[in-house]
Each structure stands twice: as C-alpha cells, then as structure tokens.
Amino acid sequence: MVTSLGARRLARAAGILLSAALLGGLVTGASRPEAVVKDDTFLDAETPGVLNIEAGECFDDPEYDVAFDGVIVLYRPCVEGAQNQSYGFIRAPDGDWDEPSLRAYAWDGCRRAQARRWPAGDPGVALYPVLPTRETWADGDRTVMCVRYRPTGRLSPEDTR
C-alpha cells in the first residue's frame, strides 16, 4: 500500500512538473518578441512628442500617457535600451505635396545617412523615416527624421553609439 501511494504521489508530482514545464515553454514562447516591421507610416510629424526628439536621441514607441491624456512618443536615454533612435534629419526639396516622391526621397536619404554613419552595416538593425504630413508640409515642414530600430526587440546601448 505504501508503494502504491508512493507511486501515485510520484506520478502526480511528475504530472505537475511536466505541466509546469509545458506551461513554461508556452509562456517563454509567447514572450519572445515577434519581428516588428516599422515603415514610413509608423510615426509622422503630427505624432505627439516626436518633434521633441533630437538627432542621436532614443525614444520608445508611442503609448498612452496619463499626464498627457493621450498617445505620445517619450524620450528614453539610449543607455537604458530604447525601441528607436533618431540618427539624423534630411530636408526634402520644396515643391507641391507629392507623397510617393516624398516617401522615395525619405527612404533613399535615410539609407544613405545610415551608410555614412555605419559604413560596415549594422546587422539586425532596420530603419524607417518619419515624414511630414500633408498638413505640416502646407506649413513649410520639409524635415524627415531618420530612425533606427531592432525588429526583434530593443536597441542596446552598443547599437546606439
């Protein structure tokens, strides 16, 4: 009888451990970041807080801020590991609003700026431009912000040097 009770306890303990291991695997699998692709529509010149970011500064993706009572981009020191880093600004040529041409100009300009700053490339780090909107363009805004990010997680402090 002791052997039967001991065997049941052992089987139950093994079942609990197996369940915990499987659940742990599910949690770990679920917590792995999926690759995030950010493009020229992710942020724009009208996204609150984005105009406060200077070249070389880091920031996190927009999120709700209680004090602001809305979604806003907030600065984060690069040494803390951020989701994005502004690495420069380019000025689009004057002219009429032409969104397809602006997009092409911004992508090309940001790629060239990235190649100048990191000539050897930077594996695992991607970029996207932050564009003026039709409304900010009408007000004279021609500035494109070039931003780097890591699609699978946060930029490390080493990434942002």
Rank of each mutant, 00 (worst) to 15 (best):
A11Q: 13
Y149E: 05
E57I: 06
V27E: 09
D65N: 13
L26V: 10
F68C: 04
R91W: 10
V130F: 04
R111W: 09
G29N: 13
V71T: 15
D108K: 15
W107E: 15
I53E: 00
A92F: 08
E135Y: 09
G25T: 01
E57K: 07
I16T: 09
R148W: 03
Y149N: 07
R112D: 11
V73L: 00
G56V: 08
G29K: 05
S31Y: 14
E135I: 10
Q114N: 14
L102C: 05
P62Y: 08
E135C: 03
E63N: 11
C110V: 00
Y87P: 07
A45P: 02
T143V: 13
G24R: 01
G124E: 08
V71L: 11
G88A: 02
T160D: 04
G81N: 05
G25A: 09
E57M: 09
G121R: 06
V147F: 00
A115I: 06
D65G: 03
C58R: 03
C78S: 07
D108L: 13
I53R: 01
V125A: 06
E34L: 14
W137A: 02
R12M: 14
D39K: 08
E63V: 09
A138H: 06
D108Y: 11
P33S: 13
T160C: 08
T41M: 10
D96I: 10
A120L: 11
D61W: 04
S101K: 13
Y64W: 13
V71D: 13
G15F: 01
G153C: 04
A138F: 08
D44I: 01
P33H: 12
L102S: 00
Q83W: 04
R148D: 03
F68L: 04
V37T: 14
A45K: 04
R112P: 04
M1F: 12
T143K: 10
T160L: 04
R142N: 03
V36E: 08
Y105G: 06
G25Y: 00
L74A: 11
D98S: 04
F89K: 12
V27Y: 11
V50H: 01
Q114W: 11
L5R: 14
A55C: 02
R161C: 07
V79H: 12
P48S: 03
D40M: 07
D39E: 08
C58P: 01
E80C: 04
A14M: 09
A7R: 15
G140E: 02
A106C: 01
W107L: 12
E135A: 14
G109R: 02
T136Q: 02
D94S: 13
P119W: 07
I53F: 00
T136H: 00
A82F: 03
D39Y: 05
V144I: 14
R32E: 12
Y105M: 12
E80Q: 13
D122F: 07
E135K: 14
D60H: 05
Y128R: 02
R134D: 09
V125M: 06
A138C: 05
R148E: 01
R134T: 10
Y149P: 00
D122T: 14
A82E: 05
P119M: 05
S86C: 10
A45R: 00
P48Q: 02
R32V: 12
G25P: 00
P93K: 08
D94F: 07
T133W: 03
D139F: 11
D60K: 06
W107H: 15
P157E: 00
T152P: 03
D98M: 05
A55T: 14
